[in-house]
Design a protein around this nucleic acid. Sequence first.
DNA 1: GCTGCGATTATC
DNA 2: ATAATCGCAGCG
Length: 189
Amino acid sequence: MKLQKSFYIRDTLLVAQELLGKVLVYHDFKVRIRETEAYIGAIDKAAHCYGNKMTKRTSVMFREGGSAYIYMIYGMHYCMNIVTGNAGEGSGVLIRNVEPLVNLDEIFVNRYGISREIANKYQIKNLTNGPGKLCKSLNITKKDNGHSLLSENLYVEDDGYKVDYIHKGKRINIDYAEEAADFEWRFFY
DNA sequence: GCTGCGATTATC
DNA sequence: ATAATCGCAGCG
């Protein structure tokens, strides 16, 4: 069943963990969420909206939970977040690693420009195990920024899959974030 | 207007 | 370990 607004308007660390094992649906794609990171603007120097920094880029993060925040990083990759909490809070969950469930043929073309049959082992292993790889694989771009997760073509559903143990660790590539760099807000299984 | 850099990835 | 590559924030 599709997750409703009330799922997202909760504590960001809780949402980040409960998103594990859920299925992200985007048009004809379905992928299982395997790794997430929480970002909480109020106390998190790694967050784009740290210190309530409202800019053109971060405005979506200040919405009520349940929207997609898509941003471009390093001039060449898109990353997808799910906005969490109450309006004005400025928090969200980065989707880092997913496992494709359907439509593999189209994913290989989007990601590598090749048919699935000729993909090598390395390409298969690294298909969608990163935030930029996820967006490339599913063709998620800036056009999707601000889109509602309660809509027809973009949402998260619970298909009954159970995650047994959630691993926790420090978030990736935020060494500049001082004390926040040590927060164990990365979750995976 | 100009400058510097990043919640990444692929390759060396 | 490092290049690729560009939107945008910060400055003034």
